[in-house]
Amino acid sequence: MRIVVLVKYVPEPTAQWRFADDLTVDRAGIEGRLSELDEHAVEQAVRLVEGGLDAEITYLTVGPVRAAEGLRKALAMGGDAGVHVEDPAIHGSDALATSLVLAEALRRQGFDLVLTGMASTDAEMSVVPAMVADRLDAALVSFASALTVDPQAGTVTVQRDGEGAVDEVVAQLPAVVAVTDQAGEARYPAFRAIMAAKKKPVTTWSLTDLGISPDQVGLAASCAVVTQAVPAPERQAGTVLVDEGDAAVQVADFLTTRGFL
């Protein structure tokens, strides 16, 4: 069985993020890392194989040169190989264009099960898994908090964590499954695993390799344009008081003044 995990190299959440002149996220000047939410998908793939599933795990990322660091991190957690789609024309792609690149790369790679995180920690849209599944005519299950694969039946059974209910969902393979942070803690790779990951194969593909024309992606092909990006108005500095036994009364007074009591 072929498992492909979609992973994204994102700006470090604790870094000072900013916009570049073209109103895209400045990715060149900010430290990056493998998205924490994709680490849960990596973990699930590795656990499936550790649990006895006969599968090869490939990680797929789309991003600038440094995005390969995200692949190495994933490979240190487990798995077999990496694919990096890197092309300057991809810069500024929206979710629709990104999903096109991912779908064409998946077509070329071949897959039975695609795993990914519930969202990226930068754009946080949570729409790319659905887009990729729809383009590939694959089954889609998002917000999975647990999954099991039945290779004989060719199905994946997922616990889907919705707002009002938890569903048990059975999907036919090939399928795209996006997992939540409830699926299980991601492991910390040991030093030896990190060293071993450096020897695992990583292939780089360009848009030409995928048969995608540069005018189908990037800022110019974007279906939505950013017209303005500004810092949110600073919250007005409030009062900070130190509890000297009367803080509860003061909070209650505040709530009364504001009409909450």
Partner: peptide, 19 residues
Amino acid sequence: TRLSKDVAGIVAVRLGSGV
């Protein structure tokens, strides 16, 4: 909502719309 993220993604792909 979680359901609507899936729906929005699929609708955008089928219509070629911005989301």
